[in-house]
Amino acid sequence: MRANNNIDKELVEAYLAGDKTALATLVKRWHKLFCDKAYWLVKDKDVAKDIAQDSWTTIIHKIDKLKNPNQFKYWAFRIVCNKSTDWLRQQTKNQKRIIGYDMEIESREGHYSKDQIQKQILLEAINALPTNQNEVVKLFYHQDYSLKQISELLNISVGTAKSRLFHAREKLKNT
């Protein structure tokens, strides 16, 4: 893992020094993984590709602010996760009234079971969580990451990951 971090560090430093091929190499190394991560979150291949591309735009514009080039992987994945979460939040916002209205009509007509409605409400509640809690819940429950793995991926302490998961659970209990 350190070897990969050193490669990323060297590429970031080379790009910042003016080597445009270093950026192309970073893109080759990470673009597919960014698309995969975005797809895991948004469940739409085309949107995932757009998010990955938008993430690269942000990465290019802000790479000079990256304090530790060894942390490129975590920093860049954070950007992809944030962009994905922003997209999901916007979709939820746009569709919340429509979904609620449709579910109410379908429920009256008997098309949705009580379990389906509860699952949809839970999903909406998870999507409504603050970004940092939403990510931890999805990584912990959907991708079965351990708290240690989550802390490494998001570049936070294990205690912070536990705290975010705890607070997310508390909010979901009140839903």
Rank of each mutant, 00 (worst) to 15 (best):
A3I: 14
N4A: 11
I7R: 10
D8A: 06
K9P: 01
E10I: 13
L11A: 09
V12N: 06
Y15G: 03
A17T: 07
L23E: 10
T25Y: 02
T25V: 11
V27F: 14
V27A: 11
V27E: 11
K28M: 04
W30D: 06
H31W: 03
K32S: 12
C35V: 15
D36S: 09
D36K: 07
K37I: 11
Y39A: 01
W40K: 12
V42E: 07
K45G: 08
K49H: 09
K49A: 15
A52I: 13
T57Y: 04
T58E: 04
I59F: 13
I60S: 03
I60C: 09
I60W: 09
K62H: 10
K67D: 02
N68G: 03
N68I: 10
N70Y: 15
F72P: 08
K73G: 01
K73D: 05
W75Q: 07
W75K: 09
A76R: 05
A76Q: 09
C81V: 11
C81W: 02
C81S: 14
K83E: 14
T85R: 09
R89G: 02
Q90T: 10
Q91P: 03
T92E: 14
K93T: 12
R97C: 05
I98R: 10
I99Y: 08
I99A: 11
G100T: 13
Y101K: 07
R108C: 00
G110L: 05
Y112I: 14
K114Q: 11
K114Y: 07
Q116P: 00
Q120F: 00
I121E: 15
A125Q: 11
L129C: 05
P130E: 03
T131W: 01
T131V: 07
N132F: 04
Q133S: 01
Q133K: 13
V137W: 08
L139S: 02
F140S: 07
Q143Y: 11
Q143E: 06
Q143K: 14
Y145A: 08
L147H: 12
L154Y: 09
S157I: 08
V158W: 05
V158Y: 06
K162G: 13
L165M: 04
R169K: 15
E170D: 06
K171Q: 05
T175L: 03
